[in-house]
Amino acid sequence: MTRPAAPSQFDDPWQAQVFALTVALSDAGHFPWTDWAQAFGATLKRHGANRALDGGADYFNAWLETLESLLEQRGLAGQAEARTIRAAWEQAYLSTPHGQPVKLPA
């Protein structure tokens, strides 16, 4: 097992965003943290069945997948809707000139 020289926090801004989003949802009472830990633990177990997870990017990929399915199960955000909005964001990035703020079409 290798140990990073410096304390690692988040490797990428989206990891911090998905972390904050999840904590904010739980703080707002949409699900208890124990439910989150159970669901997340199950995803990690499934992902780690065939290979050892390194605790870095694959950890937050499992986190995001857990949040997407938890939100669908609880009727807070459907996966189909999430895919549509994701595609809209992708289109917005591709069609916004470099340097301009990227926004979803109203």
């Binding site: 801004p13 965003q17 998905v18 989003l21 955000a77 999430a82 895919r83 916004t96 470099h98």
Partner: peptide, 19 residues
Amino acid sequence: HSLLPSDPALRVKALETIL
């Protein structure tokens, strides 16, 4: 165009937008 974020970054953005 603007630099396209990674797939997970776009998925997080989508969830945030909806919520």
